[in-house]
Design a protein around this nucleic acid. Sequence first.
DNA 1: TGTTATGATGTTAGCGCTAACATAATGTTA
DNA 2: TAACATTATGTTAGCGCTAACATCATAACA
Lengths: 341, 341
Amino acid sequence: MRKRKGAGRPTISDVAEKAGVSTITVSRALRDPSKVSDHLRRKIDNAVKKLNYVPHSHASALASTRSNIIGVIVPSLTNNVFADTLRAIYDAFDQGAYQVQLGNSRYVAKEEERLVRTFLGQGPSAMIIAGTDQTDVTRELLENAPCPVVQIMEIGDDPIDMMVGFSHFEGGRAAGMHLVQKGYKRIGFLGARMDPRSHRRMEGFKEAMRSGGRYDPDLIMTTTTSSSVTLGAELIGQLRARRPDLDAVFCNNDDLALGALFGCQKAGISVPDDMGIIGFNDLEMMAASYPSLTSIRTDRYAIGKHAVAMIQSALEGEMPDQKIIDVGFELQQRESTSRKR
Amino acid sequence: MRKRKGAGRPTISDVAEKAGVSTITVSRALRDPSKVSDHLRRKIDNAVKKLNYVPHSHASALASTRSNIIGVIVPSLTNNVFADTLRAIYDAFDQGAYQVQLGNSRYVAKEEERLVRTFLGQGPSAMIIAGTDQTDVTRELLENAPCPVVQIMEIGDDPIDMMVGFSHFEGGRAAGMHLVQKGYKRIGFLGARMDPRSHRRMEGFKEAMRSGGRYDPDLIMTTTTSSSVTLGAELIGQLRARRPDLDAVFCNNDDLALGALFGCQKAGISVPDDMGIIGFNDLEMMAASYPSLTSIRTDRYAIGKHAVAMIQSALEGEMPDQKIIDVGFELQQRESTSRKR
DNA sequence: TGTTATGATGTTAGCGCTAACATAATGTTA
DNA sequence: TAACATTATGTTAGCGCTAACATCATAACA
């Protein structure tokens, strides 16, 4: 007698036996209740409850060559921006029949490609990937993937499948225009990490400077070092050393902006009178700081929520209302750019 | 002819055929190369490379009732503290043969229990779970789980299996003692969320107050609201309204501490002379702020690294050196508690 | 009434892998 | 040299589920 023992927990056969039907009927009742008569469905539901049956996802994945995995790839786990979006994704999927599988590409394109391969190898139900700057190979893999794909965080005009985000270029431009309007004259840009989205914000900023007659490449200071508050203080120090006449900065993100504020305070420079500061993302701390910090508010949670909604309607076979959702952004003006002239 | 098509990618049989061996030999060569002769192993490795073979994890999981999943359960995705630990876990596992499966319990015990059930249902290779305050049911599930289990973030004397973290009680005590030593007299406690770890920090703090002759329950202000910088400013405002003589606070975490600093600045209270502030965790911003903020530094990345190392040695059948690893903490004294008397 | 569409359920054969046993080849001992 | 370990490889039968086809009942129609 050379039986294998299995995991011990109830199987679909146990349910089928208890309900007096065949296994495939149980399978159908669980996956698409409309395919089974009310009568049998009730019996099956009862049996499931009584046995405390939970489908073996691996068996299901093997038989159907399709798993209940939702692959999510982000470039950073510590960046608050992604954390908010991830939270939305987990919130939306946690109750349901799907398993979120998270990958961290660390801003490395090759790593991202590897993760896409790994995830696709599991026959995911859907993929969510941050950004629009995939390698050609990654893009092709995803275009041919037999599942919905949502690019998040930013939008562009050539989606792999679907997109939710906002225009970083426009966000950067709005920030720049705000500083011009506020009457600042020598407006700098501080940028860390300089991933593609940071670049687009910078380009938007430059555009605003040009149209406002304030463009000066000497006032742009960037580094590929990852962003931090400490770095913000350092960068503004360096830029001021180079250009003591600097009177405002747009920071690539809020950590830098907070750091820039601290840097100014340490150097005895008054914000906003001698230095205007604007950040990007509007993390919670921006409103609480003293002086409070102007920032471009983005709704990261909404991005995650929309992404999941798009996936769910795609999985239910509906055509989504739109392939590209722009959640926009909103300038939150606060004390750090409200100078009394 | 009623063949099923499969996923199209190469299977273990394809490799076996190409290498001129049986499938089980390929299986063994991949899982435990020492069980196969060099001769065949070379052939198999070649075939794998040529076919670009990747094992189908679902099939493997089904056949062995054991998946390559590492289940990780944390109470928050946005708290930087967990983000650092998660990053370490992802960094350590990303290259290998394991898949990290992340769950967010949202500080809800029942949710945690549900996640543990879900994960155990997949036959994980290991489980990592934050904290030591699981429900009895959760604990029992994990104690009987046929895989290594690591509790992270804190330590205690009754591990389910293994533990990595530090004593939050001692951390809180060290913070309290520091304020006493610095000569502060009416020392308050600000606590948000008040999860079990926050409680233990508070208890450590109280202990320090008692032993320093400074215990005053009226100076303790807590809320179950989740922590934020804004909240820190509010809480210190409320506590000062109640006790204008307050001259120092230990904040449950760094967000509150930063908020408390901003609150003081707004109210024109000089830090550290009129108000000492100490936080917990020592996030990066603490050193950068102005004035810089004293905090209890904890090594979250190390916790994740150790957890993975413990799991890996357990999976290789080794007895770990120790079941409980205390990564400790370190008081980082900065300007916010360095008063000139 | 017989023919055909429609829907509900069942039978069978895998999905790709590995546990459990079987066997062959080699070494080890008295 | 026989008797027995030990190691390397193979055979077979599932793991639990679902795709694909088959069957049966009922409704719908000419």
